[in-house]
């Protein structure tokens, strides 16, 4: 199973096995990772699943779909390496991905 590392905003780092096909958001919510609210349940309508992607990973990820950048406008402190974790679908290619969770979701 691919391993995803979540850097929580309290400084903790948690590496979790997440099944292929789940989203990075679901991997967090199902494993009690702090700081990913995912209020809309993955509908790309809330931006409370916002994460920063570790730089070396950012370009390797599938590109943003229409709407993700629009939604990121509303995220808390968006940066160039911001993504919505509900739009990142876990696959073998994502094994080793590191994401940091912002200090707040809004």
């Amino acid at each position: 199973m691919p391993k995803i590392t979540y850097l929580e905003n309290n400084g903790n780092s948690k590496t979790i096995d997440v099944s292929n096909g789940l989203t990075v958001m679901e991997g967090a919510v199902q494993n009690d990772i702090q700081g990913i609210d995912a209020d809309c349940g993955g509908g790309m309508a809330c931006a409370t699943c916002h994460v920063y992607v570790n730089e070396e990973w950012f370009d390797k990820l599938p590109k943003k779909e229409d709407g993700e950048e629009d939604m990121l406008d509303m995220a808390f402190e968006p940066k160039k390496n911001s993504r919505l974790s509900c739009q990142l679908i876990v696959s073998d290619e994502l094994d080793g991905l590191i994401v940091s969770i912002p200090s707040k979701q809004g």
Binding site: D39, C46, T48, D73, M74, G106
Partner: peptide
């Protein structure tokens, strides 16, 4: 200053 960043629940 006016901020329009949508709504949050």
């Amino acid at each position: 200053v006016l901020g329009f960043f949508g709504l949050i629940m």
